[in-house]
Simulated scan of single mutants.
Amino acid sequence: MTPSPTKGATTREAILARSYALACVNGLEGLTIGGVAEQVGMSKSGVFAHFGSREELQLATLDLGGELFIRDVLVPALREKRGLPRLRAIFANWAEWVRHEDDGGCLFLAAASEYDDRPGPIRDRVLQQESDWRDQLAKAVQLAIDSGELAADTEIAQVAFEIYAIALAVHHDAGLTGYTEAAARGFRAFERLLRSYSPTA
């Protein structure tokens, strides 16, 4: 008897959720069909029926991570007023995202490290996700320029780069020296960055 589409979709979601959790701890390279099957209590063939290869599982796991990131970081920030309130909300949500005290770490940072020099579909997907997020940051910066809260001659790509750099530093230090101090330093750096691009700077 063929499983209903709904049941199949539910099973796939359960597999992906577990795969994502494992990847946060072990990285994408640590994912295997057998390892995920064991974690969800299925046979290898059962997992293989939903993901025809290890690479397909890895790509789907990356996509899930991207969806969760947008859900937790960007979407709540869109409720804030355009301009610096929204940009601050994005950074605050991002800082909370990198906390990772219970789930092992950030999948995207691990993937960037694992695949930065390894051409192929996974690296391409990582690059696309990175590019899409930089575009979102750029849009938020542009809105702050449009509102007059950042200088008209602000180099948008540079600000997005610097915000990204601060977030990476928070994540790095959070894992080594503790989240609270890392986040506090990150917020100070972020506010200093915004002041440096103020129309009155």
Rank of each mutant, 00 (worst) to 15 (best):
F69P: 01
Q129I: 05
L57G: 01
E55H: 04
M1E: 07
L57K: 01
L68A: 14
D124Y: 04
Q142G: 01
H50C: 06
E162F: 01
R185I: 09
I70R: 11
A23Q: 06
L74P: 00
N93D: 08
K44Y: 05
L31S: 04
G30Y: 15
A95E: 07
A138F: 03
A110T: 10
H172F: 13
E149S: 05
G83W: 03
E101M: 12
A37Q: 03
A174G: 10
P119W: 10
Q39W: 11
V98S: 00
A189C: 05
Q128F: 11
D72G: 04
T2H: 09
M1L: 13
P76L: 10
G27F: 07
L176H: 13
R88A: 06
S19Q: 07
V47N: 09
V36E: 11
Q128S: 14
E80R: 12
A182L: 04
R88C: 08
L16H: 14
L176S: 03
F91V: 11
G46S: 07
D72Q: 10
R192F: 09
C24T: 11
A140V: 15
R79L: 10
V47I: 12
A95F: 02
A17N: 15
Q39D: 08
E80F: 04
E13P: 00
A183N: 08
V36Y: 14
P3N: 08
R123C: 04
E56C: 02
E67P: 05
E114G: 01
Q129N: 05
R123T: 07
Y197W: 13
A182M: 03
V40W: 13
K7L: 15
G120Q: 09
R125W: 07
